[in-house]
Amino acid sequence: MAEQVALSRTQVCGILREELFQGDAFHQSDTHIFIIMGASGDLAKKKIYPTIWWLFRDGLLPENTFIVGYARSRLTVADIRKQSEPFFKATPEEKLKLEDFFARNSYVAGQYDDAASYQRLNSHMNALHLGSQANRLFYLALPPTVYEAVTKNIHESCMSQIGWNRIIVEKPFGRDLQSSDRLSNHISSLFREDQIYRIDHYLGKEMVQNLMVLRFANRIFGPIWNRDNIACVILTFKEPFGTEGRGGYFDEFGIIRDVMQNHLLQMLCLVAMEKPASTNSDDVRDEKVKVLKCISEVQANNVVLGQYVGNPDGEGEATKGYLDDPTVPRGSTTATFAAVVLYVENERWDGVPFILRCGKALNERKAEVRLQFHDVAGDIFHQQCKRNELVIRVQPNEAVYTKMMTKKPGMFFNPEESELDLTYGNRYKNVKLPDAYERLILDVFCGSQMHFVRSDELREAWRIFTPLLHQIELEKPKPIPYIYGSRGPTEADELMKRVGFQYEGTYKWVNP
């Protein structure tokens, strides 16, 4: 592979701008107003304001973009700056750019259920340069409990009458099928589907988006991507930290609602779906819905739930269990780990287990898709061969690698495990991989909904998990304890083995 010439960040961002501006969906010269509902909250200060700053800094926003914060707290732009700027990672050389960014910011205080507050917000936006005809993007960085009041008031008082209007809704989209349907029906009564952007930030990850290209742009994968060759698929999300004093919020939802029903299920769809007619948003989402419709409700015998306990040999936070978090209700049975087996009941995947695993306070930070292939028929190497695996590593250190057998150097035919490896950090030294939120917010500006969740996708996802969630809430089974920093409950490994996964433990990928 030829040595790549190092590029400056300015040059890299210039390439990104060229890609972005050559499309006809990006209205570079139009006025846009980006409204952050819930501007005083954690999500706004840690993710949304920093993301908008990065896009502005790199010249990736339309030229005439204004940012308006809205929340109940009586704040000023200076207050917003004070709480969000520490997350910007701005350099001293960017000081003038930073001043320009905050000059485009404003803030309006108001209630979430008060019509007069929204009329005041609308008047404020109209007073901005060309504000009355601007395109408006409303980001709901809010708890779902206020979605209905907020969307109703936005629709009645704050819509642009000339430009387009788009609304970005953060997960969780309800707690179960019934609450999700209620919320979807409410929002759909106010906005068209092409105006609604239900954001799952995992769909903005580079390697998640790469799944489609790997599958449908490489001839070698087509013939082997089926039940005849693939023994099982494992989708993993692991965090090495616990709730760390923020367990009160987590306890309301648990690990299945927080990660599995959305992030992991979306990745499953991209692995299992048929080739779409095109890369058009609805063509892709149509195929994802077909996959979900082929999955039956989760069966309790295919589920393992766990909850982390303190590690007596650990240090600091590792010595504390979930129930030691003062914000967690006493005696909570909320799971911090889950392993679930699903089956896609169609011709391509009949009988292939899709194993979804996620948890907190585990032994490493990792998100990946792992396809394990069947054993080689007619073994001539005296059971020395391990199964081939194709691994798409989402985070950290984005990579695609194939675990395969090669001859060990020497005189004899002794096979050993090795890999074919594409590590993004080595291959793409001159490429700026956008943060997931950067990519998705740019998608909203461009009107691309491919990486957002459609209402029928959402409904099918909740259909699969709601009976299990209701059973857990009714019966309150005690989750299996696992030690902070471990791989999780051993019962999860036993479940995976029972459905056909072979864990060798003899080879570990190392970032080159």
Rank of each mutant, 00 (worst) to 15 (best):
G222L: 10
S29N: 15
R9S: 15
L211D: 03
L121H: 03
L211P: 01
L20Y: 15
E18L: 09
E85R: 05
R136C: 10
C158S: 12
A109I: 13
A109F: 11
R104V: 11
E156Y: 13
N185Y: 13
D24W: 07
I224Y: 05
G110Q: 02
F173M: 07
S160C: 13
K46C: 01
L121F: 08
D42S: 05
S40A: 00
I36M: 03
F26E: 12
T10C: 09
L140P: 04
M37S: 07
Q28D: 09
A39V: 04
G38W: 00
I36N: 03
N122A: 14
A149I: 14
Y112H: 00
D100R: 14
F26G: 13
V12I: 15
K97Y: 06
D251M: 00
A127P: 10
P223W: 06
N229H: 11
L98M: 10
M212W: 06
I36V: 10
R136F: 13
F102N: 04
P92I: 12
D58Q: 08
F221G: 00
F34I: 12
A115R: 15
N126F: 09
D30A: 09
L75Q: 11
D181E: 13
D194P: 08
E63A: 08
A116W: 12
E252C: 09
F221Y: 15
D194I: 07
G69R: 02
P86D: 09
G23D: 15
R17F: 15
I196S: 04
N126K: 11
R72P: 02
K238M: 02
R227P: 06
L190H: 11
S29I: 15
K171E: 03
G248Q: 06
I15M: 14
P92Q: 10
D251W: 01
V213W: 08
R57E: 03
G247F: 06
H124W: 10
S157F: 12
A127W: 10
S160E: 14
I234V: 14
L43I: 05
I15P: 06
L177G: 08
N105I: 09
H129T: 14
L121N: 03
N185V: 08
G23W: 11
L183T: 04
D79K: 08
Q178P: 12
R120H: 12
E170C: 03
L177K: 09
D100H: 13
F138Y: 12
Q178W: 13
A116H: 13
H186N: 10
A6S: 15
N122T: 12
Q209S: 10
F88W: 04
G204S: 05
L55H: 08
N210M: 03
D194N: 13
F253D: 03
E170S: 02
I48A: 02
R104M: 13
T51Y: 06
D24K: 11
K47H: 08
I199C: 05
G222Q: 13
R182N: 14
S84T: 12
Y202F: 07
Y249W: 00
Y70G: 03
V108S: 07
P143C: 06
V150I: 09
E148T: 14
I67V: 15
S29F: 13
S40T: 12
H201C: 03
I168A: 13
D194Y: 08
M125Q: 08
D58A: 09
G254R: 01
A115K: 14
R198P: 01
R182M: 15
I162H: 11
D100M: 11
N153S: 14
K82V: 14
T65Y: 06
K45P: 00
N135E: 07
R81V: 10
Q133L: 11
R198G: 00
R81Y: 07
E170L: 01
I224E: 06
V108F: 12
Q22P: 15
L128T: 13
T31P: 13
Y107W: 08
E206V: 07
G245T: 07
H32Y: 15
D200R: 02
P144L: 02
L214Q: 10
H129V: 13
Y147S: 00
K82T: 11
E93C: 12
T145V: 06
A78N: 14
T145K: 05
M37K: 02
F173L: 07
G14N: 15
E18G: 13
V233S: 02
E244N: 12
N126T: 14
W53C: 01
H201A: 01
K82R: 13
K46M: 04
P144V: 02
L211W: 02
G174V: 00
R219W: 09
A78W: 11
D30C: 14
A116T: 15
A115G: 14
I220S: 05
A78C: 11
F34P: 04
L183S: 01
S117V: 09
H201W: 01
N105K: 00
M212R: 05
G254T: 04
L75C: 13
P50F: 00
P172V: 00
L43V: 06
N229F: 05
Y147K: 03
L7R: 15
Y197Q: 04
E148K: 10
S179E: 08
R182H: 09
D194S: 14
I48F: 03
F138T: 07
F253G: 02
D79G: 09
Q195C: 11
F66H: 14
H27G: 09
I67L: 07
S188W: 01
F66G: 04
V146K: 10
S184R: 02
N210Q: 06
S84G: 10
E85K: 07
L137P: 04
G23P: 11
R192I: 08
R227T: 09
H27W: 11
V233Q: 03
S189V: 08
C13W: 07
R120T: 15
T51V: 10
T145R: 05
W225A: 01
R17E: 15
K47T: 02
D114T: 14
E193R: 00
R215K: 07
R219P: 09
A78Q: 13
A116E: 13
A115Q: 15
S160G: 13
N218Y: 01
V213M: 11
L61M: 07
L137C: 15
E85P: 03
G242P: 04
K152M: 13
D228T: 09
H124P: 04
L43M: 00
F26I: 09
R246W: 02
K89Y: 08
V150C: 11
G38H: 00
T31A: 09
R182P: 01
E148R: 10
T243C: 13
V68L: 08
N226V: 05
L137K: 00
Y118F: 14
R74V: 15
E93W: 08
T91I: 11
F253L: 02
L128V: 11
F216W: 06
F241M: 07
G14Y: 15
D176T: 04
F87G: 06
R74S: 14
L60Y: 07
D113V: 08
S132P: 12
Y249N: 00
Y202G: 03
D251S: 07
V208M: 13
I224M: 12
P172K: 05
F173A: 05
